[in-house]
């Protein structure tokens, strides 16, 4: 191979779904403009939302959703065995997103609430990110993921480059967009500690950052928390801010940490 760009030979992709809303998979199908080009570079071996064939022969596994059952963990181990690259899709798979909200309640209560008297027939665990079960090679973050970032990361992986995911916080992108800061609109915002890459989409649309992409590499949590306190948030409020998308790592032993595959 002596071309100047060295490319993985048309790898086979498989898309798997754990506990999620399938919204991130739909984002892949939304890549109308890019899908044709993309299909020249990769082949889908398994993609429930898009095709009927199934195959166990794949190189890259894209995993959407959080781990919520013992069976999920088993499934992930098998995937890890078969795939040479494992990539998470969306906040549920990392840092855990909305499914993680269940961790704030007693597990038995949740099971009872959802499955009533049949709870013991549906064994369930704390909601965990994929990373808590198997090693992950790359994350496509966001709730839902954005198709541009999906294409950017997939093409990077194809030419053997580390996924281009920013290490810095959302504020960097937000100030570049010349947004009025949420803090100047009477809101609070997790932008100063949340990993960028989304183009500060929520503050740009007049909302604020809820932290769906997990923590930035080097967040100054004590200072960010002091700021939230100054804006009248109680320690419970601040915890609730983190728990919304970062439930697993907020509650996990060792506490909230910035962890992302590189």
């Amino acid at each position: 191979m002596n071309g100047p760009i060295s490319v993985l030979k048309r790898p086979r992709l498989a898309v798997f779904e754990l506990a999620s809303c399938a919204g991130c998979q739909l984002q892949i199908l939304n890549c109308e403009d890019e899908l044709i080009d993309l299909l020249r570079l990769v082949e889908f071996a398994y993609f429930k939302e898009a095709m009927s064939e199934t195959s166990d022969d794949y190189d890259v596994a894209l995993i959407e959703g959080a781990v919520t059952r013992p069976a999920d963990e088993e499934k992930l181990r098998v995937i890890r065995e078969r795939a040479s690259l494992v990539v998470t899709l969306g906040s549920c798979a990392f840092p855990v997103g909305i499914p993680g909200l269940k961790n704030t309640h007693d597990l038995a209560e949740v099971e009872k609430l959802v499955y009533g008297d049949h709870a013991e027939l549906f064994p369930s665990t704390q909601a965990k990110p994929v990373d808590a079960v198997i090693p992950v090679d790359a994350h496509i973050l966001g709730c839902p993921i954005h198709k541009d970032e999906f294409v950017r990361i997939v093409t990077a992986l194809l030419i053997g480059k580390r996924p281009p995911v920013p290490t810095y916080p959302v504020c960097v992108e937000c100030r570049l967009k010349e947004n009025v800061c949420a803090y100047d609109r009477g809101l609070v915002c997790l932008g100063p500690v949340t990993r960028a890459g989304c183009g500060a989409i929520c503050p740009s649309y007049g909302s604020r950052c809820f932290g769906c992409r997990g923590l930035a590499d080097d967040p100054n949590l004590p200072s960010a928390e002091a700021l939230l306190e100054e804006k009248g948030r109680s320690p419970e409020d601040i915890r609730a801010e983190y728990v919304l998308y970062n439930g697993y790592y907020t509650l996990a032993e060792g506490g909230l940490k910035a962890k992302v595959a590189k």
């Binding site: 191979m1 002596n2 071309g3 100047p4 030419i159 053997g160 480059k161 580390r162």
Partner: peptide, 17 residues
């Protein structure tokens, strides 16, 4: 150690950089 150095290693003789 990383992206560029890894990519260089994969390039063959005659490749252009």
């Amino acid at each position: 150690v990383g992206d560029v150095t890894g990519a260089l290693e994969r390039l063959g003789l005659g490749a252009r950089v």
